[in-house]
């Protein structure tokens, strides 16, 4: 297994108007993302999570410290093309990411720029549309698609480059539950079956619990970095950062505050039901 992204001692401030003190958005971030991982990043607006993600494929350049992608220095302009072929990014608003007037042309856009031969391009576009489940929409106009479908077109456009890693910055924030499920299913499939490394920035806890690893950010720093089960035990801390906690974990937390002894590491409905059964059965709890 190789390291996809390695961030060491990264700090970043956005340039400000003259005379004003620069506002530092990231403070001394150290982070390693290994090939095949599915990492979710949580944090409220302005915590620096998008800024961090934009360093992963060289959209932003570190003020201090370094970012290496597949061993290449992201601060070196020479490496950017190769980095962006391997690390693609999907943004929040599906409407801002579609360029062409027909779905398959949109998916082919990056390939055309890379000078991929036509036959190869057609094959990759087919494959990418298949992976996101939109093969039958290839001749449609993107603006006639739903938000979830548009996001999947955007994902397909990246997949066509056969990247090692996809970064998604709140890809489901503007979607309905059905669109969210479609996109999440697609993301999981890419990670589990195609072994593509995934970095998912999200506000939705039910999405974060599906990751292998959850990073919580606040005020430009990484506060937590662990498995979802461990991270969502910190209900009090997550509340204080105004983040949501899955309702099931929240219920366990609320019961514990009443001195009812339940474990706090409950992530899904089934586990929650099982714990309440134990509690009511009176058998295994003390």
């Amino acid at each position: 297994m190789s390291t996809i992204i390695e961030v060491s001692n990264l700090s970043f401030s956005y340039p400000t108007e003259e005379g004003k003190a620069a506002h530092r958005v990231l403070h001394d971030i150290d982070l390693k993302i290994e090939e095949g991982e599915f990492v979710a990043i949580l944090g409220h607006n302005g915590c620096g999570k998008s800024t961090l993600a934009k360093h992963f494929n060289g959209i932003l350049k570190a003020d201090r410290g370094s970012v290496h992608v597949l061993g290449m220095d992201a601060g070196d302009e020479e490496n950017l093309l190769e980095i962006r072929r391997n690390v693609g990014m999907v943004f929040q608003n599906p409407d801002n990411q579609i360029i062409a007037t027909v779905v398959d042309e949109d998916v082919a856009f990056a390939l055309e720029n890379l000078g991929i031969p036509h036959d190869e391009m057609a094959r990759r576009v087919d494959e990418a549309l298949e992976l996101v489940g939109l093969s039958e929409y290839r001749q449609r106009a993107p603006h006639m698609l739903s938000g979830g479908q548009k996001q999947r077109v955007a994902i397909a456009g990246i997949l066509a480059m056969r990247p090692k890693c996809i970064i998604l910055d709140e890809p489901t924030a503007m979607l309905d539950p059905k669109g969210r499920k479609e996109v999440m299913k697609t993301i999981l499939r890419l990670n589990r079956e195609e072994h593509i490394t995934v970095v998912l920035i999200t506000h939705y806890m039910d999405e974060a619990v599906q990751a292998d690893r959850v990073i919580v950010m606040a005020e430009g720093e990484m506060i937590l970095d662990d498995t979802p089960r461990e991270v969502f035990q910190n209900v009090g801390l997550l509340h204080s950062l105004s983040l949501d906690v899955p309702q099931t974990a929240e219920l366990m937390f609320a019961l514990r505050q009443e001195d009812i002894k339940v474990p706090i590491s409950v992530l899904n409905v089934d586990e929650c039901v099982a714990e309440i059964e134990k509690l009511l059965g009176g058998g295994e709890n003390d």
């Binding site: 539950p177 039910d206 309702q247 219920l251 409905v269 089934d270 039901v273 309440i276 059964e277 009511l280």
Partner: peptide
């Protein structure tokens, strides 16, 4: 394609089990 809240699901499941 719509959902009910998770917590509602927990209580539906509990009732189905006879609680």
């Amino acid at each position: 394609g719509l959902d009910v809240p998770r917590i509602t699901r927990v209580f539906f499941a509990l009732q189905d089990k006879g609680y």
